[in-house]
Amino acid sequence: MTTTTIAPAVISGTQPSPLRIGPAKAVRHGLALAGRGIVKIGKSPAQLIDVILTPIVFLLMFVYLFGGAIAGGDVAGYLQTITPGIMVMTVFQASIGIGVSLNADASTGVFDRFRSMPIARSAPLVGAVLADLVRYVVCLAVLLTLATVMGYRVQTNPAAALAAIALLIAFGMSFSWISVYVGMLMKTPGSVQGLMTVLVIPLTFASNVFVPSQTMPGWLRVWSDINPVSLMSDALRGLLNGGEVAGPLFGSLVWMAGVVVVFFPLAMRAYRRNAA
C-alpha cells in the first residue's frame, strides 16, 4: 500500500450528490454472490438432499399409491398428467428453502461485511435467489429422469421442453421472494420453516396438480383455478404434453410479476431493518 490520500471532500468541504449503485453494477454484485452460493452448494452437496428426495417420493407415491384410485386404473395416463404438476410443486417447495438458509446466513458476520461494502444492498439477497438455480436444476433433473424411467414422455418438442424448464425456474425464483421476506422477518430459521410450510400447503395441494379442479366443491374450485401452482401446471402441461399454453401462461406471468413487485421491496425493507 502506498501513501494514502483521503477523499477530497475532507479538504474542499464540498458534498457531492450521494453515490448510488447503478443497476448494471447491482446485477454484477448479485452474480458474484450467486457464485459464492453455488460454490457453497458444491462444498456441501448434502444441502441438495431435499430437492433430490422430494420429487422421488411424490412421484412414486402419487403414481403408484394414489394413482390407481384417482385415475381409475389409467396409471400411465395419470403419470402423463401429474408429471408437469409435480415439477411445479417440487420447484415451488424447493424455492421456500431459501428463507431458512438466508435467515441463518444473515445473522453471521459475513453479511455485516457485505453491508459495509460499496455494493448494492440487494446483492446478497439477489445472489442467494440466483444461486438456487442449482437446486432447481437438480430437482428437475431427478424428477424428469425418474418420470422417464416410469414411462413419461414429452409429447411436444425439445424447444418447448426447454422453454417449460426455463419458465419453471423463473417461477421458482419469483416465488422465492416470499420466503426471502419471511426469512428476513423472523427471528429464527425454525420459525421461517414453520410459517413457510403452512403457507405452501394450500398453494400446492389445493391445486389441479393431483386432481382436476372440476372434482372440487365450488369455493375450492374458485381458488384452485386462480392458484399460481394450478396455472403454472396447466402452462407446463401445454408445453410438454400439448394443449393450451397462452391462457395459463399469462396467468402465471401475472402472478410471478405480482409476487416480485410486492415481496422484493418488502424483503429489502426487512433486510435493512434486520441490519439495525
Binding site: I6, A7, Q15, L19
Partner: peptide
C-alpha cells in the same frame, strides 16, 4: 472522509 454516514453511505463504504 468528509461524507455523511447517513446521507452518502455508499461513498463512506468505499473508504
Amino acid at each position: 472522509g468528509g461524507y455523511d454516514v447517513m446521507k452518502d453511505p455508499v461513498r463512506v463504504r468505499g473508504l
